[in-house]
Design a protein around this nucleic acid. Structure first.
Lengths: 361, 361
DNA sequence: CGGGGAAGTGGAAGCGCTTCCAGTTTTGAT
DNA sequence: ATCAAAACTGGAAGCGCTTCCACTTCCCCG
């Protein structure tokens, strides 16, 4: 540490030195070609598995590649082919802490699984700050990525428009509030919510309420619609609705408001598991028993739903598959195909918070 | 859809056509230079904010850039500068579902926040399959990234060695099991665990047990060491230790084993919040009251710890800061500096699962 | 008013790979 | 044998940007 100042001076004079672009240079395709005794063209063909190379040369090149431990320089390939070899997953959301929802982790896992089959890398961009959006825009226009996946768009998020203007395939994860993009994959939010309503009706609940998400999130709207629809078909009224952030605290607060405004509900449907967990907390604090007094249904069915007390009945959504399909769809679009949008099925996972047969009354 | 087959044929004959590399070509630096009436060299200097350009020319170029809406082609820049403009965050773990731990989400947020100040993009790689590792290795050698962050290495994970062999700066998030890398940032696991032990001692607990992580995870080892150390210093015995997966179920199972093997513990320290939550579940199922019969302390202090019942006392670790510091350290290393490793402080967050004064006895 | 260093300028040589194109060689069927 | 079609080959021209280098011009101070 003694020498640090001196060192710093050296650095500032000459810029970095320890990391001058690349100390240990990697072999180039030319060297591979030379070693194999073929033209660079032939070598290129071999590493790209292209035709028009004799068996002998192909093998010679392969040997050279192995011996030199050659790996093509991605930047050069990108420049020559005009393909970056990457796709970006942009998550846009103002709600702080939203990204912490395991939902995203699961989507990311799905996306990764799908990309693993390709040679595309995943660029992750959290575009929830002005600076982040700016970077996103630049990213789109700089040929750094070959396609875009967009998640959690809310309201009139400009990311949607930006992406469509860019000359890149864009896949939406979940429909945006308005309009219908060319490519998207979504879960059957409406159908799932309807299942929740039907479950309540079937198990004798008569005074249902709902905790919905922000009104500018399409998924929240769809879930509310589906729930209302389901109730109507069953001849039940919707006692009350309260919006909240898609978080535990958001759910807890909405539940409090609901109890205050609409006393005596016997069933609550929350637009996400996190919110349902928040609701459970509030109910417990108010001395209400679940499911005896109030049945609770959530949405998502991630791991945590299994571990609440009581375990949460919830609308299952194939989150990982959502990620996989988004990636697959994007890859397909990048390859020039025209995949069709996809709506993934949802189903009800019944656990104790809203059991199949009414628990007591 | 009628024409699809025909379409498919066309595609297969000529490859894709709708996406031929880039339909709407972006302006190039040459065009900017031409428009501004300067040499390409000058234009390049301007967009890179380099000196040796007169004020007049600089402005002319800036105007041209604006008018043409020019954004430099990253691939070309990368090739010319030998810098990819990206860093990779590789998460390696066999434990399925581990990535769903909000811990990673939080680290990612931290990393993103730090990178937002730079113009580096984040490549996320889940390298938990053989294929994933292969891709990681390739990534390292293909000049696709300028640096690497590694998380959750376990045992003799080859990712560590691979990374060090690569000619790239590598920052470890959490120390690997063996050896001490040049660059890492870790939390003070040992000190934090010690705090937990001291808290138990101070609040009159006499029969503590611990749920540790897999023995090949350095963090788990450090936490066990610290806990044992703290107990010893307080003159307390460690009744029992059981390892488990770093998940809720892992914690629940370990707790069951502990109760079976060492009846009557009055305090349990879990190596992670998820495990602690699992332990709470088991305790509840066994009819044990928390904190009256058994006090529970976890590790991490993520959002969920606030919402358990009872709320979880836990060792707080600045997870987001960990991510930020990893990214900062990596950037610094990429710039040719030699940042020092960092150990971030931990502290105890006291909540009801292990209150400050013994609840009853 | 002269001289030397700083600032400005642009031509040209790459960075490492793909691919078009103009041959050259093989193949396979007469 | 004979010749067109099919399969190979490799030179050369980029992909779009950075940067070295050789000059030219400007500015400041003694």
């Amino acid at each position: 540490m003694e020498s640090w100042p001196l060192f710093a001076v050296r650095v500032s004079l000459r810029g970095s030195f320890s990391m001058e672009p690349s100390p240990k240079r990697m072999p180039t395709l030319d060297e591979v070609a030379a070693r194999a005794g073929v033209s660079r063209t032939a070598a290129s063909r071999v590493i790209n598995n292209a035709p028009h190379v004799s068996r002998a040369k192909r093998e010679a090149v392969q040997r050279a590649v192995r011996e030199l431990d050659f790996v093509p320089n991605t930047s050069a390939q990108a420049l020559a082919t005009r393909r970056a070899g990457t796709v970006v997953l942009a998550v846009s959301s103002d709600e702080p802490g939203l990204f912490a929802d395991p939902f995203f982790a699961e989507v990311i896992v799905g996306v990764s699984v799908a990309l693993e089959q390709t040679d595309l890398e995943l660029i992750l961009l959290l575009a929830n700050t002005p600076r982040g959006r700016e970077r996103f825009e630049r990213l789109l226009r700089s040929h750094r990525a070959d396609g875009v996946m967009l998640m959690a768009l809310r309201g009139d998020d400009p990311l949607g428009r930006l992406s469509e203007e860019a000359d890149l395939p864009v896949v939406f994860g979940g429909l945006p509030l308005t309009g219908e993009p060319t490519w998207y994959v979504d879960a059957d939010n409406r159908g799932g919510a309807r299942l929740a309503a039907e479950h309540f009706a079937r198990t004798g609940r008569r005074r249902p309420v709902m905790i919905t998400g922000q009104v500018d999130a399409r998924a929240a709207v769809a879930r509310e619609q589906g729930f209302t629809e389901g109730l109507t078909l069953s001849g039940l009224p919707l006692l009350g609705v309260e919006p909240g952030q898609f978080t535990e605290d958001g759910g807890a607060e909405a539940m409090e408001r609901l109890l205050r405004a609409h006393p005596g509900p016997d069933a609550v449907f929350a637009a996400s598991d996190a919110m349902a967990i928040g609701a459970l907390r509030t109910l417990r604090e108010r001395g209400l028993r679940v499911p005896e007094d109030v049945a609770v249904i959530g949405f998502n069915d991630l791991a945590s739903a299994r571990h609440t007390s009581p375990p949460l009945t919830t609308v299952h959504q194939p989150v990982r598959a959502l990620g996989q399909e988004m990636a697959r769809m994007l890859v397909s679009a990048i390859e020039g195909h025209r995949p069709s949008p996809l709506i993934l099925p949802t189903r009800l996972t019944v656990r104790e918070s809203a059991p199949d047969l009414p628990a007591s009354a």
